[in-house]
Amino acid sequence: MKSLAELQAIKEKMQNKVNLRASEDDNTVRVVVGMATCGIAAGARPVLNAFLKEIEDRHLGNVICTQTGCIGICQYEPVVEVITPDGTKTTYVKMNEDKVAKVVTEHIVNNKVVQDFTIGAYQK
């Protein structure tokens, strides 16, 4: 059974890392997940949690994940915006856990937008 004292070990590990958490700098990639009622009903929670897991498993120290309310395109939920260091914003729609893995590998790690999942691809 886990005990709260285990957090001490996590704390020590963290403090040994020089760069605790990606403080915002030129390398920061932002991931914004829409978590309003429409998003949650459509499956935003597993999408958010999949991003958190990928960030942890792959030690993506330059990625900051935040949550927001309704982005205003409820019919396309779950919606995720990825903002790369150059300021380009990509809007991914109808997201799910499998799509998250692909967006992380191709876009966040290899800087190649996954066109098929973007809102542009769905509006055609």
Binding site: K2, K11, L52, E56
Partner: peptide
């Protein structure tokens, strides 16, 4: 949790996944 972690934020990915497992176990 803060009492154990001091300055380390709860939003740190390793902390969040620990919290998730802790809740599940309990």
């Amino acid at each position: 949790l803060h009492a154990q972690l001091g300055d380390v934020p709860l939003s740190e990915p390793a902390v969040l996944s620990w919290i998730g497992e802790y809740i599940k176990e309990n």
